[in-house]
Amino acid sequence: MNFIINLFTPFVEFFTVVFKYAPKFDKAIIYTLELSIFSILLGTLIGLIVTTLKLTKFKVLQKIAYFYISIVRGTPLLLQLYFIFYGLPLIGLEFNSFTSAIIGLAFHSGAYISEIFRGAIVSIHYGQEEAARALGMSKVQSFFHIILPQAFKRSVPSLGNQFIIAVKDSSLASVITITEITLTARQFSAATYNPFPILFIAGVYYYVIITILSKSLKRLEGRLRVDER
């Protein structure tokens, strides 16, 4: 009898902690969601703008776009966040921690998103633009009515991947004092001396957020496929 109780005690203790602390993540979850959503939206906007720069015929603008991308790709996100939060104030550019995180995360995913868009745009068969131009469309009309909608559809799977990465990357905002899920988990771990159930909670929350996100993306993909055989 004692033997069986001994076997179950750790589980009971584990889940007691889990159920006690899980609700205390409410603010942390909101932070994580806000960081993810803002950085995805802003990152997509940045991505679109940078794609346009890359596709213009102005060499200077192209150079700027590629310089930006090489910086983002060539340095760790962690360092980028430190730089924005601790470095920029030294030259008079000071943002609060939340704004810094959004800027850092958005600039980061914007670079990757712009590459996704560019790839999708150049993958559209040139016959599409020719047909549009032959009808009498201007370059701009053909881009917005013919090329971009097809490119957007083609970019959804990789875009979805990038969105999932953005959710995970939001955990790095913990290093600049934002009490999102990861930092909250660390604080509770330290307070309870019991990291295992606490980290378990954090993991479950991330998993649920990402699963919901990827399910919605799959549904969007499905809906965009109506024009396929």
């Binding site: 047909a131 009808l135 469309m137 097809q150």
Partner: peptide, 29 residues
């Protein structure tokens, strides 16, 4: 661009716009 409106072109590979229905393909111009 104005001129191309007056000169229609039909391609070997059709080049229909795959994201638009048949009706929308004809309407888009």
């Amino acid at each position: 661009n104005k001129l191309r409106e007056k000169v229609g072109m039909v391609f070997q590979r059709f080049n229909l716009f795959p994201h638009k229905t048949v009706l929308k393909n004809v309407m888009v111009g």
